[in-house]
């Protein structure tokens, strides 16, 4: 996060930005969280950080830097943390809810891109896609990661029957109406596929929007390994047959 927060432009009017709640699930993100939150808060006043039972100082950092800080007393997984943050944001009166990763891989500018179609009434759900980025390539994306993500897209088309270009991007946006209907039951990483199922079954209009994902040593280290993808698929499939 090397950009100066004050220099980041947002296309959204102030009253819209005030109605946006950015939900950041965080697990052992102490080294990076303050910087991420600082950048987001420079543009969006409502930042909800959900610490998922971290063993480091993530919760303390969240309390210092975020607008709202919530802490799971034990680790329940990213899906559970997202649901906690979304529920909280809805209760606080959010009109637009954006999910944002804590490892610094998302750009604050893209929050505007995510929210804009929703506020214009074009859809209720927006899903960020790194593969729609006009610049063509995601810088520093390892080949194995690219291959795994492509497999994920194929899997989503086959199983969830939703045509997406990027099925597992943490940057998503929901209207209040959509957020009120979300009930993530898969606590861990398989929630991403569950959310795609929600998109399909809710019948709410959705669209993919181009966003950039920054691959740094830190975000790559924090990200899911390709080997772990198989476990996530298994969790998702079991979750489908055994709610």
């Amino acid at each position: 996060m090397s950009d100066n927060p004050s220099q980041l432009a947002s296309p959204l009017p102030d009253e819209v930005r005030a109605a946006v709640f950015v939900v950041i699930p965080a697990y052992n993100e102490g080294p990076c969280l303050a910087s991420v939150v600082e950048h987001v808060r420079a543009q969006y006043p409502n930042v909800v950080v959900v610490d998922d039972g971290s063993s480091d100082d993530t919760l303390a950092v969240a309390k210092r830097s975020a607008t709202y800080a919530l802490g799971h007393i034990i680790n329940r997984g990213q899906g559970a943390a997202l649901q906690t943050g979304i529920e909280f944001a809805v209760r606080q009166g959010a009109r637009y809810i954006v999910t944002f990763d804590a490892d610094g891989q998302h750009r604050v500018e893209d929050i505007g891109v995510i929210v804009d179609p929703i506020r214009r009434g074009a859809c209720d759900i927006t899903l960020g896609s790194r593969f729609l980025d006009p610049s063509g390539e995601c810088a520093n994306m390892p080949a194995v990661r690219r291959f795994t993500l492509r497999l994920g897209v194929l899997f989503t088309r086959l199983v969830s029957r939703v045509k997406l270009t990027d099925a597992h991007n943490g940057l998503r946006g929901f209207s209040r109406a959509a957020a009120e209907k979300i009930d993530i039951s898969l606590d861990r990483m398989a929630h991403a596929s569950e959310l795609i199922d929600f998109v399909r079954h809710s019948g709410l209009p959705y669209r993919e929007v181009p966003v950039q994902v920054r691959y740094t040593d830190y975000s790559l280290a924090k990200g899911q390994s390709s080997r772990n993808a198989l476990r996530i698929v298994l969790h998702y499939l079991v979750g489908r047959v055994m709610p």
Binding site: Y68, A69, L70, H72, I73, R76
Partner: peptide, 12 residues
């Protein structure tokens, strides 16, 4: 866990 987190939330 979620209920406890929301109950103990800090912020305005």
């Amino acid at each position: 866990v979620r209920r406890l987190a929301i109950a103990d939330a800090t912020g305005p």
